[in-house]
Computed example of a mutant assay.
Amino acid sequence: MELETLGNDSFVTKFVLLGLTDSAALQPILFVVFLLAYVATIGGNFSILAAILIESKLHTPMYFFLGNLSLLDVGCITVTVPAMLQQFLYNDRSIFYRACLSQLFFFHFLAGADCFLLTVMAYDRYLAICHPLTYSTRMSWGIQKASVGMSCVFSFTNALTQTVALSTLKFCGPNVINHFYCDLPQLFQLSCSSIQLNEQLLFVAAAFMGIAPLVLITVSYAHVVAAVLRIRSADGRKKAFSTCGSHLTVVGIFYGTGVFSYMRLGSVEASDKDKGIGILNTVISPMLNPLIYSLRNPDVKGALQRMFTRR
């Protein structure tokens, strides 16, 4: 165990991430699987972003937000997977204290921005379907940029607050984290000082960044469904629902995994379920988002086809 002595106290300078498995035979297989998942995620999200930039038909608020969501997905998987691949490659599971805090900060910053951006996207669909005549005014270019900027500011503030609060805790041993990346629930279990303030801050963050956005998304789509059901044309209803179906699928995956991860703070023992949910949250979700949007959205699908077949 790496310890640093200050006065009569000793503090952890390194943590050990147990990762996904102890089996030496499985590690090369997992390295290949997660490397392919990482490459697929980077390629898929940048393909979506390139299609949005190149195709003039996609220069609308909805796809502007989708492009930013793709960038956040690339950031989320980059925070966790390359470090995990390095652990598989060099068989070194240690991570320095400051590197652990950095990983924690960037993960919460990017995931928090995802929360707010998904809420903005739901509001965008509400305006487009329920208030089409005033849509261009209410969702102007300035409002689009301000919405993305405020999402990042709120998320940055929360991530910084959680990281600074965690840095005040003492870690005097043990230093083994039963996970493949640094996150709050697992670090709380290793602290040898009171985590009451940290849990309160996390509760406030969950209400502000989890519950409130989810309520706003639900209310927005309740109005959208009511408006769509009033459309007489079957084709019109189908088109309206198709533009919302992809977003609702992403919201379901994102919030489903997030709620499970942070509602288990009272659990003393970390389990393999936490690792499975972590994989869904940090790897599977960013990888699936481009597929969900390209397969369910004819505009994105057409733009990608034209982009890859154009000489």
Rank of each mutant, 00 (worst) to 15 (best):
V12N: 01
Y38W: 06
N289Y: 11
L160Q: 02
Y63D: 10
G210M: 11
K14E: 12
C115W: 02
P28V: 08
D114G: 14
A303S: 06
L288T: 10
V224C: 03
T5E: 14
F254V: 09
V74L: 08
R98M: 15
G278Y: 01
L184Y: 09
I279E: 11
T249H: 04
R230T: 03
A99N: 12
I253D: 01
D114E: 15
S233F: 08
K301I: 05
K275W: 02
T243R: 15
A270T: 13
E4H: 10
G276P: 06
A222Y: 15
K301H: 14
H223C: 04
D272P: 03
R306M: 10
L66G: 05
T21K: 12
Y181R: 01
T157V: 13
D73F: 08
Y255G: 04
N68Q: 12
V215P: 01
G19Q: 15
S220G: 07
C182V: 00
L18W: 08
G266S: 08
L53F: 12
G142C: 12
L288F: 09
L53T: 14
Q27T: 13
E4M: 09
L265D: 04
G75W: 01
L20F: 03
F34K: 07
T60I: 11
F107P: 01
A128D: 02
S102Q: 03
A24R: 05
T282N: 13
I279Q: 09
F65N: 06
G149V: 05
L53M: 13
L160N: 02
I231R: 00
N8F: 08
S70N: 08
P286H: 14
N158F: 06
Y123M: 11
I52E: 02
Q186W: 08
Y97I: 00
L58Y: 07
Q144C: 10
P132W: 12
L26V: 07
F31L: 09
Y262A: 05
L280F: 11
T282S: 10
T119R: 15
N68E: 08
V268G: 10
F171L: 00
L280W: 13
P290D: 12
A37R: 06
R264P: 07
I143E: 08
D274E: 11
T157C: 08
G252M: 14
V300P: 05
F107Y: 12
N178Q: 09
Q86M: 09
S193P: 07
S151N: 05
S261I: 15
S194V: 02
F180T: 00
W141Y: 08
H59L: 05
L295K: 08
E199V: 12
A83I: 12
V148S: 12
A303D: 03
G43N: 09
T134W: 10
V215K: 14
G43S: 06
F88V: 03
N68D: 07
L214F: 13
F88Y: 14
C182Q: 01
F260M: 10
A227P: 00
